[in-house]
Design a protein around this nucleic acid. Sequence first.
DNA 1: GGAACCCTTGCACACGGTTGCAAAGACAGA
DNA 2: TCTGTCTTTGCAACCGTGTGCAAGGGTTCC
Lengths: 351, 351
Amino acid sequence: MPPPRKFVSAREVAERAGVSRSAVSRAFTPGASVSEDTRRRVLEAATALGYHVNHLARGLSLKESGIVCLVGSELGTPYRASLVKAMTQAAQDAGKVAMVINTDRSDESVSAALRQALHYRADASIILSGMPDKSITRLCLENGQRIVLINRDDDQDGPLRINLRDGEAARCALTAFLRAGCRRLAFANSEAGTPSLMARERGFLAAAAAIGLPVTVERFGPSVYESGRELARRLLTARVRPDAVFCATDLIACGFLDAARHEFGLAVPEDLCVTGFDDIEQASWSSYSLTTFAQPVAEIAREAFAWLRLAPEEAARRPAAVELEARMVWRRTVRGRPPAARAAARAAVEA
Amino acid sequence: MPPPRKFVSAREVAERAGVSRSAVSRAFTPGASVSEDTRRRVLEAATALGYHVNHLARGLSLKESGIVCLVGSELGTPYRASLVKAMTQAAQDAGKVAMVINTDRSDESVSAALRQALHYRADASIILSGMPDKSITRLCLENGQRIVLINRDDDQDGPLRINLRDGEAARCALTAFLRAGCRRLAFANSEAGTPSLMARERGFLAAAAAIGLPVTVERFGPSVYESGRELARRLLTARVRPDAVFCATDLIACGFLDAARHEFGLAVPEDLCVTGFDDIEQASWSSYSLTTFAQPVAEIAREAFAWLRLAPEEAARRPAAVELEARMVWRRTVRGRPPAARAAARAAVEA
DNA sequence: GGAACCCTTGCACACGGTTGCAAAGACAGA
DNA sequence: TCTGTCTTTGCAACCGTGTGCAAGGGTTCC
């Protein structure tokens, strides 16, 4: 049943201010042609009546709703939560508002979310996880909806793709492990199989292969803390125990560290070097002091909205892919000193 | 500039299906009077054309946008993130969609967020932190917008207030401390001064006063990990060092534990008992194994949306306040055995 | 004084839906 | 065949806004 809602409309404001309805509309449109006097009178009447421009109606005629859809799964997870926070904040700074849609792991649910975005005529959708069906993506694009893919590494044309240089980070981690004297390498991954996770794994394997070192790869479960523990149990009971482990995410790394220390009594970094990825807040907590690679969430959000600000034809002209660096954050789960001067300066600040 | 967007509208679907525009509308309105035959033809034409009902326009005439506003600060924080996740999920399950608005600490920004909610004719607003101005709240209510306050403990009439029994939890913590043989009590709080934080503090002090024990209260900074560390430095260097500390949130407790163990070399729970509040995921990580009180986020979300489902007059008849229990989660930062059978069973499961 | 110009204002239509109302069609019963 | 009832359908009005267009009024310049 339609609830008895009584919003004050421009007409009532117009009546009270003694002007036409269009004058009210213009008073609220920056740059419109209104005399200072009428604008003042309109604004007065508006605040007196508690008038708020109806953005649904405005979106209807402007064909621009001001809504940006954020779609992703596991939004309670530290990394995702920080991304959501950065994105909603960036949306507000850009004068938009974020609509967030939870998905489960399935691509079907991402498509459903995108359909929801179409329903609300969202100006753009930002996809944090999963991969929508190609047909729905095309539909969105045809309808003039911009799409941003974060860490999706897709080859579709049209969306903006923001990715990290996972491979470079992996090489960087390997270098650190080598300098620490490690030789028995392992990669602890989840079974999620997302593009960025796999890129890290591939990058690490490739870098190790380039210098002729083998890597034990273990994959288990979703990308959560508990998986890290299980991965530790598997890797640390292997016949040759690794002395350096690249964990695909910080959450996995935290679980791995806890199991290594508390279940296996190992000392990190003395017995075992570990790195993670994401630089979630917990990585800096002193129980972990995890050496990791930072997702530049603020920068990701900035890039996304900078692109969204662009006029459509301008955006089409730009390269549709952005690559950002995952800066190494040196802490205390790898032996030795930070490799670069920049990192060293940073570590000094943190210590 | 208005982007050249081309959405397919009901008229085009109508033309293609050879029916009137109203028939299309009815085909998408459950329970409307349409023959099975036309509905099928309409749906066919709709999918062929990629038609999506415009929810902005629908909201305009229905006076029900299907939007629920989630407003709060520190959305990247574990507890808040889990609440956001639960809420967005619950919104979707209720056939609504969540619009999340970031605020800073100020009440002014909460009012701004609420104004945004009015702009989009949100059906409801759920406030996770901060306190909006009374006048804006009234305005929302007058406009038929429902408001839910989470842990705000306000006396305003009209909004639904969902609160936890913080005092009861505090008493429960005290009992556990006493059974562990602790006598030098302390309360570690932030300076945020939110209603729930203060309720916990008051509850703990009152319970201690009832049996004649003094409590050292220390407050510092925002409710973050780093504040917990600083609080530890202050409390653990005091002339009489506390042997039991109730931390106002888990984040504070984690910082406190880390400082106590790593900076002061104390053993928990042998030298010092600690409890937190919220039961964030990290509390269960084995580096902390924090005994704490769980915020029933799923239940909170359920209560909120159950109330929002109600017809307005029905909702007005119900009591406008819900009190939920913060169940104790027994882990390993308090000496001894869990106080109740229920908790014991749970602990057994966890172990 | 008149022409040219600019600023301001109101009218009317468009945006894309929903829905009350009446008409049309189908069908049963007398 | 006529009447009454029920279902389905289209028309038209409405939701609240933005804006092109033309008209009105004031100012400037010749």
